[in-house]
Write a protein that binds this DNA or RNA. Structure first.
Lengths: 339, 339
DNA sequence: TTGACTAATGTAAGCGCTTACATATACATG
DNA sequence: CATGTATATGTAAGCGCTTACATTAGTCAA
């Protein structure tokens, strides 16, 4: 397993250009400190050798990486993918590279990924949600790596966050559902453990029910994985209970789309016989038939604001400002009054 | 609020445990070479200090990173996301970490990302499609970084690849379309430049038309970006031409879903008035109404096979075996005979 | 007990860069 | 011209690790 090609080093470039390694380094990092003629020689040597600086060595010598890590549950969710895209674009403007890792919603994997990104020298970290082992927060502290929590905005949390109030958003939607006369309400949720977003959304509905004088324990909850098929299966389950719901709220649009599909397969009319509500407002929500009523989450803006906050923390060591984004109810065609 | 926290180093651990740095290193990497009592001391020190090895330093000293890079057009496309997930899972089994970067379909960005991953020490690289500047291939060669091309399988290409025959897959579908009597055929394609997959799919249709004695230049082609809305706009455009198509093939399911949505908005019946065909067979394809006729691409298997090929290349320097995956036509409800 | 091994640990030389500091060169000034 | 200043380059000391090699401790047969 020999790699008999030897990557050219700074040394090689220096030798070829007939200058010192220091000059080459400067030429690459601070070109205006180097004479024009020298720059030319160096650049030629770089090109001819196909030289590429070794990131590890550079990071070690310079003692910074200009890298920010982001750890999300899954790339498969367009929501995260989109938010991250904006995060990345904004960071690039500030001169940072983004390293992305995903956890498949496993807290164990998340811990590994955190350690791995820290080992790789991330100057800062973006994490989704507050809920995780305190041990890991301690580790991050001893490593001196600043962390920003996103996707949630929780004034009661000790850590700064850029996100939205999951409970309030879902509560607002639940209020609408209740005011349309629905009493048999169900929730198809992502798994709740180590997922404070999902938990908050659940609480939002329970809150709305209590406020309306309903018994919150009547809320039927199905926990499932992320996926269209999973949403379909959960919907099935719900419809086969003794008292099938007249309104099914979903933790995200993908689950809702699954539910919608199964409703069609079962020949259950939406919204005449059952209302189905999503969360996120992906493009997807407008592509279904009937178009999905859902809660708009400004992912891109969230990613951007998170990037701004984290960049200023890392660069200027400014304390991170928490930032709350507003969600919005989007009424389309899957929510109707109880018939 | 200075970052006066100094990350603990191997040195610190060694001092605390009362052993040499070599012993600590061995204890961490080859525990069985170290006495039990010593291991304990070291592990305790590691834990107490919250030590985490510096990846850059490690890579430099060990002269390998066990890291493989993957560069895809976009995370936003579930297709890539899913294939990559499998790629990553398989590589993990072989002891590799995966670094992912995306290009937003820009060849310039791709070049940057390639350089960045190489600089980060990637032992191997996964790239999508063959089409790129020869310069970049030369660079990769001088760096001694093995490359695997995926998402395409092209026997005529000089580089090994793990993927499927885009042209043949699309041709097979086009044959069906033609045999159903369609003569006015259109394609909503991703942008063709630097995208040999999209180009091959186009050629596949043209081929089928020629074979059937049709004039391939009659194929209407709209190039657009990736996205549901984009698909909708393209469909609109197509329907407003002098001779609107009776069958619209799409370069991917997402564009097809957009087309389908717009058809509904325009009150054009699918498949009675126009057939719409996707490509990829995402979950999405079964969620629409009517369910999408499309071409199944085995993304997960593709990711897995790519991982296996790349891992064995990097570990044992075995020459990469090209591997062809089979696609399959999936007939659902959006393709029908010409009315 | 001793000698011959083996197992466990230590010593120290880099890996490829950056950067403080030293030195050299060029040019303007009195 | 000597001198001072600014500009360009070189020298060399690490950054935090791994690992070949040297050293020491431990084990066992005779």
């Amino acid at each position: 397993m020999k790699q008999n090609v030897n990557k050219p080093t700074l040394q090689d470039v220096a030798r070829k250009a007939g200058v010192s390694t220091a000059t080459v380094s400067r030429c690459l990092n601070f070109p205006d400190q180097v004479a024009g003629r020298t720059q030319e020689k160096v650049n030629n040597a770089v090109r001819e050798l196909g030289y590429s600086p070794d990131f590890g060595a550079k990071a070690m010598a310079a003692r910074r990486t200009n890298t920010i890590g982001a750890i999300i549950p899954t790339m498969a969710n367009a929501l995260f993918a989109r938010g991250l895209q904006a995060f990345q674009e904004e960071l690039q403007l500030h001169g940072f590279t983004t390293l992305v890792a995903s956890t498949s919603y496993s807290s164990e994997t998340e811990e590994q990924q955190i350690r791995s990104l820290v080992a790789r020298g991330a100057d800062g970290l973006l994490l989704i949600g507050h809920d995780r082992d305190p041990e890991i927060y301690r580790f991050l502290e001893t490593q001196g790596v600043p962390v920003l929590i996103s996707w949630v905005y929780d004034t009661t949390a000790t850590r700064p966050s850029v996100g939205f109030d999951n409970a309030a958003a879902m509560k607002e939607m639940a209020n609408e559902v209740i005011s349309l006369g629905h009493r048999q309400i169900a929730l198809i949720s992502a798994e709740l453990e180590f997922n404070d977003r999902a938990t908050a959304r659940l609480h939002g509905i329970q809150d709305a029910m209590s406020d309306a004088g309903l018994d919150a324990s009547n809320l039927q909850v199905v926990e499932t994985h992320y996926g269209i098929d999973e949403g379909a299966v959960a919907f099935d389950e719900l419809m086969n209970t003794a008292k099938p719901p007249t309104a099914v709220l979903c933790g995200n649009d993908v689950l809702a789309v699954g539910a919608l599909r199964r409703a069609r397969e079962l020949d259950i009319k939406v919204p005449e016989q059952v209302s189905i509500i999503g969360f996120d407002d992906l493009d997807l929500a407008r592509a279904t038939f009937p178009a999905l009523t859902t809660v708009l989450v400004p992912h891109r803006e969230m990613g951007k604001q998170a990037a701004i906050a984290l960049a200023s923390k890392v660069k200027d060591d400014a304390p991170i400002q928490s930032y709350e984004l507003k969600t919005k109810l989007v009424f389309r065609d899957t929510l109707g009054p109880v018939f």
